[in-house]
Design a protein around this nucleic acid. Structure first.
Length: 297
DNA sequence: GCCCAGGTATAAA
DNA sequence: TTTATACATGGG
């Protein structure tokens, strides 16, 4: 049973009278939280669909990662998910929202599936994908780094950058804050072999730490304005801007279109009919994962 | 060596 | 407004 003394965000979800429930029961232990009968939640595609770079697969069922300065191990066995190494308060204050557990992905998936048969197939391929609520600054930097790189390389670069300039969390490190990076020189980043991206990172750090760019203000802006504001940062084009919005600012109406998505475009007769959906970003994620997994061609 | 990678800045048409 | 090219680095 739940410890009602630590009631926070999840309780609203548990107590809600809507018919949907993505978890039937939440069990708190000393240093772990057990989610029973999860629906529309599959950790493997969630961590491996290209949306995040700080979670590593330890074995068939377990991933380890860092967010919000905290380490976590996540193990899934069918419909049971165990979040290891966290407190009840951590879960209620952070991880519940990080995994977007209050959102009805089943309902969203059904809505999206009506839009186009290819989208229906893509969503059915990995229905357990959830869009993680990542830190905005970390998401911005991650996708600046991501340009013209492959995912393993992106992960390596971010890990080394965190180790060098972040805070120790135990066996891992947080992603360095903008203020910390803003104090560095380009030569301090040489060992990361960022190439032409090094100046993008430093200038973004300066703009964010000075307040010239305010990510929290951008969160609430209409999507075109938000995109335009993010693109004031050198090295941020429409793709990185949309990734920052979707993965860092919980803007599910932003849908990054990249080389993989362009491969998918022909399947939709030359355009993406879901782009106007409030859940365009989720649709994009289903399709990206589907195409990249080699399900088509 | 050659080509591509979850792109973007810049210049030219 | 649209299209072409350079850009650092690593991996197949």
């Amino acid at each position: 049973m739940y410890d009602l003394a630590v009631n926070i965000s999840y309780q609203k979800f548990i107590m809600s009278d809507t018919s949907f429930k993505s978890i039937s029961e939440i069990i708190f232990k000393n240093d772990s939280v057990i989610l029973e009968n999860v629906s529309d939640f599959d950790i493997a595609p969630t961590f491996e669909c290209g949306q995040c770079f700080r979670f590593d697969r330890l074995d068939e069922k377990t991933y380890f990662g860092v967010a919000q300065g905290k380490e976590i191990s996540i193990t899934q066995d069918k419909k049971t998910v165990v979040l290891q190494g966290i407190t009840a308060a951590d879960f209620n204050n952070f991880w519940f929202d990080f995994f977007d557990l209050g959102r009805d992905y089943g309902k969203i998936r059904k809505e999206l599936s009506l839009i186009h048969p290819v989208l229906e197939k893509a969503a059915a391929y990995a229905p357990g994908i959830r869009i993680l609520k990542q830190n905005p600054w970390e998401a911005l930097c991650s996708f600046i780094i991501s340009q013209q790189k492959q995912i393993p390389g992106i992960k390596m670069t971010i890990a080394r950058m965190s180790e060098a300039f972040g805070e120790k969390t135990g066996k891992a490190y947080t992603f360095p804050c903008a203020e910390k990076l803003a104090r560095l020189e380009l030569s301090d980043l040489d060992f990361l072999k960022l190439g032409y991206r090094d100046r993008y990172i430093l200038s973004a750090a300066k703009m964010v730490s000075s307040g010239e760019i305010n990510l929290e203000n951008i969160r609430a802006m209409p999507v075109q304005d938000a995109r335009k504001e993010l693109m004031k940062i050198c090295g941020v084009g429409v793709k990185v801007a949309d990734c920052t919005l979707l993965y860092g600012l919980q803007r599910l109406d932003a849908a990054p279109v990249d080389t993989w998505m362009k491969k998918a475009e022909q399947l939709f007769d030359g355009g993406f009919p879901f782009l106007e959906s409030p859940y365009a970003g989720i649709a994009q994620q289903y399709i990206f994962h589907y195409i990249r997994s080699g399900q088509i061609n």
